[in-house]
């Protein structure tokens, strides 16, 4: 084990978040009109707390598929947590559950020490498929959550402008989403989620389908926004290097049923880059741990004995 990557079977102690320095700033950064939410972290109450969570899906033939098995996870306020695992291991299920879109079969979900079981605008999920509304223009997409929250028209206008500028999409306010590239759509989804000003941002493999340049750019953007606003981020990916690049902590999920295999604390200084040797080194270590699960998933998908 390198000193950078420390396996953490238990909840990590109160690390200060001071190592967090603002990422490289963009050329034209909009002035913040919103005060960042500095999270209450006094008594160590987790922002999100998954307590013995299990979830099984009913499958067509009447049997049940155990997607999540006894997950115990605490996420600190303002923490950037990355969750990695092979595809099909239950990552999306876990985020849907935290978003309140799925109910656990057993166990409970606590947010700020309160049990929740329904969607709430304090937790906004950016879906793997994005789920932008094609019948609305880009600006109207960003406005949607605020409209549901009942914000005034003027306030909505102001924030739409602010968040579109934040993701560098101001000129595309009146475009429809199908007119945008993949990376731009990704940014619309980010703006739409941020505009509702959630405490917790849930991101489901948001950058998986992007080219390398766009992804690097969005990594920087996301890190900057996170550093500036102090939001809690739970970021799901199957890319370990991306997880190390972004996360304060990386949790590894096992394949079928999805269990928490191990947690790593990433103590590399920020800003980090995907190509950093230290990032690559830490990623390799986690990847070794993950390999077994990836092989299980490959066997399941392709029946590859060769995967061993």
């Amino acid at each position: 084990m390198t000193p950078n990557v420390v396996p953490q079977p238990s909840f990590p102690d109160q690390r200060s978040l001071d190592h967090r320095s603002p990422a490289r700033s963009g050329a034209t950064r909009p002035k913040a009109i919103l005060s960042p939410i500095r999270q209450r972290d006094v008594n160590g109450t987790p922002k999100v707390w998954l307590k013995n969570i299990s979830l099984s899906y009913r499958v067509d033939n009447g049997t049940r598929l155990l997607a999540l098995d006894n997950i115990n996870l605490k996420v600190k306020p303002g923490e950037f947590l990355c969750i990695v695992g092979p595809s099909g291991c239950g990552k999306s299920t876990l985020l849907h559950l935290i978003a309140g879109l799925h109910q656990p079969s057993s166990g409970s979900l606590l947010v700020d020490d309160h049990k929740v079981g329904a969607p709430g605008t304090d937790r906004i999920l950016i879906f793997q498929e994005l789920g932008l509304f094609p019948w609305l223009k880009v600006g109207e997409n960003v406005e949607f959550g605020m409209k549901m929250k009942g914000l005034s028209k003027a306030e909505r206008e102001e924030r739409v402008q602010y968040y579109l500028r934040l993701v560098h999409l101001s000129q595309f306010k009146d475009s429809y989403t199908h007119q945008l590239s993949g990376g731009m759509r990704q940014r619309v989804a980010l703006a739409r989620a941020l505009a509702t000003e959630p405490d917790v941002l849930l991101m489901d493999e948001p950058f998986a389908a992007l080219d390398a340049q766009t992804r690097d750019l969005l990594h920087d953007e996301l890190e900057r926004i996170w550093a500036e606003t102090g939001r809690t981020v739970i970021f799901v990916t199957h890319n370990v290097r991306e997880a190390v690049r972004l996360g304060d902590r990386v949790a590894v999920l096992t394949f079928r049923p999805g269990r928490l295999k191990r947690e790593y604390s990433v103590d590399l200084p920020r800003p980090r880059h995907l190509e950093d040797v230290t990032v690559a080194k830490s990623a390799r270590e986690i990847l070794d741990d993950l390999r077994e699960e990836i092989n299980k998933s490959l066997e399941e998908q392709y029946g590859l004995e060769a995967a061993r």
Binding site: L125, F127, F133, W135, M148, K149, R192, T196
Partner: peptide
Amino acid sequence: IYAMAGRNLGAHGFRLFWYVLLPASL
């Protein structure tokens, strides 16, 4: 996905129907 995205962004009941389900199915 549209219904889920709508609920995720705080729409429910009639507003979910009117602002999401209806336009999404048009």
